[in-house]
Every structure is written in C-alpha cells, then in structure tokens.
Nucleic acid binder design. Structure first.
Length: 601
RNA sequence: GGCCCGUUGGUGUAGUUGGCUUAACAUACUGCCCUGUCACGGCAGAGAUCACGGGUUCGAAUCCCGUACGGGUCGCCA
C-alpha cells in the first residue's frame, strides 16, 4: 500500500507516530509562510502543514498543489497548538507535519465543486459521475447501499436462505413490460431477453427443492422512466416453499425492522406494520401505496342529509356515484390561486371538479359557534350552516380547516382524493422525513380489464394464485376475484411486491386460458413452467423488494438515481459513456441484423 | 405519445411587465501579498455572442414559434 493510515482514522491517540498518507487535495490554505493542506481520502480529512522554516524543498512543492491533485505525504502526527483545534472533523485535534511530499497525479480544475455541498446540474453530475462519486452525498449513499445489501445477505443467510444466481440471458415472454432483446449470433433471427425479474426461475428453484432462495437481482424493463424507475434496477428477490402470506409478512417485517435499527437507527420506524386490503387502502387513502406518515383519511359523506339533494350531486348519486371528503388542516387560509391548484390536482385524475368549503376562524373556536359568514365556498349560497357542521363533524374537521369534496364514480373519487391527499401532505409538510411507515397491502384484484386488448389480464402476473374460494367467480364476475398478491409500501412508495403462486398445472392452465392464451401459445411460452408444475411442485410464494427505492427512502433522496452510481437519464441514456450508440456494420452482420432508416447525426 | 417546468462565464444564481446591462453577484480560476488557518484573508486580473434555429420590433437574455438537452408527471411499468 502507498499509505500506512487513513486520513479520517487519525486522532490524538496517534500523536508522535510517523505516517504515510495518500489522497486528494481537498483544499489548500496558503498563508504566505505556512501552508495548510486538507488531505482527503475515503475515510475523511486530515490537515497537513508545510513550514518553510522546517523543510523549504517540500514547501515549494506544496505551493504548486491544486484541488483534486493526488498526493502522497509522509509526516509525523502532532497535536495542534492550543486554540487551533477543529471540532468539525474527526482528526481536528491533530495535524501532520509533512517532511516528504510526492505528487502522484495532477488534476484539471474540476467542472464542479467536490469539496463542498452545492447544487449542480444533474446532467453535468452524470457526465462526470466519477467526480460526483467523490462528493459526500454520493459516497454516503453508496455506503448506505452497501450496508443495506450486506445486512440483507447476512440476515437471510442466518435464516437458511441460499443466494442463487439466475441467467441474465433468458427467454422473452412478451407480456408485461417491454423486453430488452439480445440477438443470438448462433441462431440468427432468434433472441434472448434480459429478465424483467427472475420470476419464473425462482419458481423453478422451488420446484427444484431449494425451499428458501434469495438473490440481489438486476432486472430490466424497457419502459419510460420516472424518479423511481430506471431501465435496469435491483431487487431483493426471494421465494419460499410451503409458505402463506403471514409467513412472508413476518419475514419482511423482521428484515426491515432489524435493518433500520441496525443501519439507520436515527430513523423512527412505526411498528407493527399495518396489514390492510387493497379495498380498504383505496377507501381510506385513495391509493394502493398510501403514505401513512400522516392520516388525512378519505371520508364517505354520501349519506349526509341534505348533501345528496344538492343539484350538483344529484346526478352523481343517480348514477351510483359517491361523495367523499378530506380535510386540509388550516386550509381555510388557502388563496384563490392555491385552490385552483388543488382543483387541478383532482382534475388530473379524472374528477370533474373539487368543492372547497373553508371554515374560517380561530382554531380554538368550537364548531358549534360557526356562523354562515365564516363559511367560504363557491357553493355557499346552496349550503347551510347545519349542513356544513354535519359534514365537518363527520370528517372531524375543525374551525380554520378546509373541506375538500369530490363526487363521482367510486374509483375516480378515491384516486383523485388520494392524489390530493398526497399533494397536501407535501404542501402542508405533513410527511416527516425522519419517519418510516411501512404497511402491507393485500388481496389485490386478480384481473383487470384491458380496454386496448379487450381482454382480462393479470393485475400482478399470471402465476399469482387466486383466492381459491373465489374460483366460482371466474365465469360470472372475474373483476371481483381477489388474488393472493401483496405489496409492502413505505412512505408512499411500493417498496416490495409478491404473491403466493399457483403450484398446480391445471389451475395455471385454466387461468392462462382465461387471459387469452391458446393451448399452443401456453406450451410455447410457459411449457417449461407448466411441465415443472406437473412433477410435484410444492406450494410456494415470495416477494421482491426494490433495493433502489428502499435505499433512496432511507437516504432521504427524492429519486433513485441518487443511490445508483451510474444511472440513466429519463430518456434512457448514459451521459457518461454516451450509450446507447451505433455499432459497426460487422457487428450487425455477425448477428444477422440490418438496420433500416438509420437517422444519422 | 400528451401535459408542465427548466437551460445566463468553470459552478451556483440575479436580471425575464422589451431600452438605465458596457449582462450583475458569489464562488472557483490566474497572478501578487500574507506564519495558525480550516468556507483563511487582502489586492489585481481573466472568463458569457444569455442552449440552438427562426420570427416580431427602431431595439430581444427578456415576447412568439420550433428544435435539442435535463427534470417532474400521465399513458406505460405482467
């Protein structure tokens, strides 16, 4: 090694030692006759002093040093003179008196600050990601990610899980997300696909008698990106034989609870994790991934006397619609512009409009003292004090709050108010960044109707077990069938998703047939799995957790790119290597491809 | 594919109801000075045809249209 110690490890216990250090020039302070150098390596920073009276030769070299140069320094660890300690760094009580200095490498002036926290345009950070990684923010996220993954490995190892790799080159199954395709050279015109997840393989592992499998698996989906979606991402994929939902929930809760207390003890985890059905989650929070750090639940007010009689709501009720409300605490102070903004939020999710009712006044005032003058609403002339009080009582609003009411078809009311709840959670700063609120959401619908294909399709994936007692609904009302799929949500993110699988060939074929597969297609695409189910497949189930999202939440980052060393942009490009790129004609010929209509730059 | 936001010296921002801008400020950078700083300090200097293309106008960083790039989001993500 070119160094004997790490910068951040030195403290007053090392005084008197001769050390050799190597690292980057974080900062240089030149006092004309005395130079201070902050030397940085991965472990931290230590101050090095160069005194011309003691060693003029290396002093003059030190004068030439610039930010991010790489240097090797030999020197002695000394206590700092009284009154010059720096409590902000771990090595702040000591400094290195250098007596040898070697420049290992020079550096251009970096395109952005590495030695201080500052906002830098993200595309610039991505282009120079190797410099961005030197910064504290990225380093601490990468470190956190390492700790999380290591904890998971150790935890599952303790529980007798086997870590098993599955192929990256595998068979394309065109349903679900769009596949990334890899052409085969040996079989021209044939393609591998990169796995969207190891789903089928982990089921085959269960059939292979592994019983407890896990993998930190890279997954690939050629779909449009979001803050929490990259074309390649990492899942903790696990599968267990002979399990039921409760076993999975217990395992996941124990894993996450221990992980947080070990890795991010500063975060406040609420336990035990609530378990609620999809139906309940949609009804109470208007989302299948509710942020439970704050309440602000949706309340059904359809049956409040006098409300459904109002003209605006009459037609909604006639068409089997519902009326629901949420309360914005202190919302009576919202400006007209803010109210317009709220209205746009619900409209974006299909609601026809938003009825706002502000109850103005001091929060200490009792609801019973509210007068008509205190009620501000676009429909105030149709409202009575009594009606507003009834609604307020039902939704537990106080004076000073605003009632936000949406009417219409149930799913639109739930989803639009859920979106509004989420929006208000941010706006009113009700999402405590130090809290972690997990929950399990269960009993998702088994099927959803695809308008595009005019066909029922699986909500989760076609290997998800239905609730067997509901199989009789398959012919009459498949939309009412519930699955044995479940999600784990955290602070409004879907952090994990899984299900109890189908382990019987007949049931699997039956459901594949229902979602539109002919016997022939079934054999072609899933024959391997169906065959495997015929040879004593054990009941099994599992879950897959999004490592990127989990780490991003634990790090308090707003998107997963911040926890991925080399992420892609929203348009799926790698700004550092400029991938994807054109390839040589010869490469294409080798794999039997030709490109039509190439757009030249 | 739709909608929304953004793009000004190396970096971060100001300026954006068109004209007091010869585009301002901070920092970084270069040089000089400085022996206890740690976001060291002082002085001086260099550095931007305001993303690109077109239009309106006597006059455009500023208004309009288009394009590119980045971000957010809907669709999409079994």
């Amino acid at each position: 090694m070119l160094k004997t110690h790490n910068c951040g490890e030195l403290d007053s216990a090392s005084v008197g030692e001769e050390v050799t250090l190597a690292g980057w020039v974080n900062r240089r302070r030149d006092h004309g006759g005395l130079i201070f150098l902050d030397l940085r390596d991965r472990s931290g920073i230590v101050q090095v002093t160069f005194d011309p009276d003691k060693n003029e030769a290396i002093y003059s070299v030190a004068e030439e040093l610039r930010s991010e140069w790489v240097v090797k320094i030999e020197g002695s660890v000394s206590s700092r003179p009284d009154g010059t300690n720096n409590p902000n760094i771990s090595s702040g009580e000591i400094e290195i008196h250098a007596h040898k200095l070697e420049v290992l490498n020079k550096s251009l002036n970096p395109p952005f600050y590495i030695n201080e926290e500052s906002d830098v345009d993200e595309s610039l950070r991505l282009e120079y990601r190797y410099l961005d990684l030197r910064r504290d923010r990225m380093y601490s996220n990468i470190l956190l990610r390492h700790n999380v993954v290591k904890f998971i490995r150790d935890f599952l190892d303790d529980q007798n899980f086997l870590e098993i790799e599955t192929p990256i080159l595998m068979k394309s199954t065109p349903e679900g997300a769009r596949d990334y395709l890899v052409p085969s050279r040996v079989y021209p015109g044939h393609f591998f696909a990169l796995p969207q997840s190891p789903q089928q393989l982990k089921q085959l592992l269960m059939i292979g008698g592994i019983e407890k499998y896990f993998q930190i698996a890279r997954c690939f989906r050629d779909e449009d990106l979001r803050a929490d979606r990259q074309p390649e991402f990492t899942q903790l994929d696990l599968e267990i034989s002979f399990v039921e939902e409760a076993d999975i929930f217990e395992l996941v809760e124990e894993l996450f609870t221990n992980l947080v207390s070990e890795i991010t003890p500063e975060l406040e985890l609420a336990g035990p994790f609530p378990i609620m059905t999809y139906e309940e989650s949609m009804d109470r929070f208007g989302s299948d991934k509710p942020d439970l750090r704050f309440s602000m639940e949706l309340t059904d007010i359809t049956n409040i006397n006098g409300l459904s009689q109002m003209d605006v709501f009459q037609s909604v009720i006639d068409e089997n619609g519902i009326i629901k409300a949420i309360v914005a605490p202190g919302g009576s102070k919202f400006s007209r512009r803010e109210i317009t903004e709220l209205t746009e939020v619900v409209r974006s999710r299909g609601a026809k409009g938003l009825l706002t009712v502000a109850i103005e006044g001091d929060a200490q005032t009792s609801l019973s003292d509210v007068k008509m003058d205190d009620i501000k609403s676009p429909l105030s002339k149709y409202l009575t004090v009594g009606l507003v009080k009834d609604i307020a009582a039902k939704v537990e609003a106080s004076v000073g709050d605003m009632l936000l009411i949406v009417a219409g078809e149930r799913s639109i009311v739930d989803e639009s108010l859920g979106e509004l709840r989420n929006f208000l959670g941010d706006k009113l700063e009700m999402k405590d960044p130090n809290k972690l609120n997990f929950a399990f959401i269960t009993e998702f619908p088994l099927f959803q109707w695809s308008k595009e294909r005019e066909q029922w399709e699986s909500t989760h994936h076609p290997f998800t077990s239905p609730k067997l007692e509901e199989m009789h609904l398959l012919d009459e009302s498949p939309g009412d069938m519930r699955s044995r799929a479940y999600d784990c949500v955290l602070n409004g993110y879907e952090i994990a998703s899984g299900s109890i699988r189908i382990h019987e060939r007949e049931l699997q074929e039956n459901l594949l047939r229902f979602i539109g597969y002919s016997q022939e297609e079934m054999e072609g695409r899933f024959g391997h799995l169906l065959n495997a189910l015929s040879y004593g497949a054990p009941p099994h189930g599992g879950i897959a957790a999004g490592i990127d999202r989990l780490v991003a939440v634990l790090a308090g980052e707003p998107n997963i790119r911040e926890v991925i060393p080399f992420p892609k942009t929203q348009t799926s490009q790698d700004l550092l290597t400029k991938a994807p790129s054109l390839v040589d004609v010869q490469q294409l010929q080798d794999i039997g491809l030709s490109i039509n209509d190439i757009v030249e730059e």
